[in-house]
Design a protein around this nucleic acid. Sequence first.
DNA 1: GCATGATGGTTGTAGCTACAACCATTAGGA
DNA 2: TCCTAATGGTTGTAGCTACAACCATCATGC
Lengths: 160, 160
Amino acid sequence: MSTRWLDDTEMTAWVRLAAVLELLPGVLDSQLRRDAELTHYEYYVLAMLSEAPKRTLRMTALAQRTNATLPRLSHVVKRLEDRGLVERFPCPEDARATNARLTAPGWKKIKATAPGHVETVRQHVIDVLTPEQISQLAAITGAILESVDPDGNLSAVYRR
Amino acid sequence: MSTRWLDDTEMTAWVRLAAVLELLPGVLDSQLRRDAELTHYEYYVLAMLSEAPKRTLRMTALAQRTNATLPRLSHVVKRLEDRGLVERFPCPEDARATNARLTAPGWKKIKATAPGHVETVRQHVIDVLTPEQISQLAAITGAILESVDPDGNLSAVYRR
DNA sequence: GCATGATGGTTGTAGCTACAACCATTAGGA
DNA sequence: TCCTAATGGTTGTAGCTACAACCATCATGC
C-alpha cells in the first residue's frame, strides 16, 4: 500500500500546527510560572475546580475536564495540596473515590492569576485572529478532537 | 485596568485549542514510540536532517527548524548519536559550531518511519478537515506563530 | 595586539510526565 | 454468599525538558 504524502497546502498547515504545538505551551507556561509559580496545567486544574459546584470535583471528573490521565492528575494534586491550594477528602457516596476541593488560598490564587493569563491568551491567540477565524478555529479543533478522543473519555468540555 | 474576558465563541475556540495542545502531542508520540521507538521531536530532528543538503545542518539551524532551544537539541542529538542515527563533527568554517549529520542507519530509520507517521497525521488532522479548513488552519497558525515568535528566532520554516 | 562582548554549544540538575504495577472498593452473577 | 471483573485512585521510576551556569571561539574597537 502506497503512502499518501501531503501536498503543499497540507504540509504548510501541518508544519505550522506542529510549530504551534511546540511553542505555544512554553509561552503559556512561562508567563504563569513567572507571575504565579504555576504551570499551565496546574492553572487549568485550579480553574476547573473554581467553576465547579462547591469548588469540588471527583478526581476522575477533574482529570477529564483537564484532558489528563489520572496518574498525572494525582501527582499534580498532591503538589497543589502540599502548597495549600487544594485539599482532598474521601467521597462520601463511593469509598473508592476521592474529591478534590479548592481551598480559600487556592481561590485567591486563581482570582489573582486569571487576568494575566487571559491577557496572554488574548495576545497570542484571540486578538491575532479575526472573528471569522475564531469560529473557524473552533470548528477545526472540534474536528481534530473528535478523531483524537472519539469517546470523549478525556475532555468532555469541548463538546457543545 | 479591567480584564477583557473571553466571550462564548472565543472561549469555545480557546478551550478546544488547549485540549488539542494537551492531547495531540501524546497521540503522535505514542504512535512513533510504538512503531519506531522515537519521540515526535526526535522524528522531526531526523526529518529535518534528511531534507537538508548532504543531510547535514549546524546545530543552531537544526534547533530553529525544529522549534527547540539549543540545550534541548543538544541533549536529544547526543542520545540519537548514541543510537547511531546521527553523528556530530566540528564545522570547518567556524570552530565554535557543530554540524549534525544523518547516518545511513538514520536515513533508513526515517524512510521506514515516515509512512506510518504521515498516516497518523492524516488520520487525526488532515483527513478530518475540508480543503477550506486546511487553508484556514494554515492562516490561523501562521498568525499565532507571528505573535509567539515574531522574529522567527525559532521556526523559520513556517514562513512561506 | 588585546580587551570586551557576542555567538555557538554543552553540561548539570531540578521538576514534570508517562507507563506500569499496585491496592481498595464496588457491582454483578451463579 | 462468594467470586470475579470493573472502577477509582495512588505510587514508583525512568526519561525528557527547562533553566542556569559554563566554556570556547569569533568579531569589533582601540
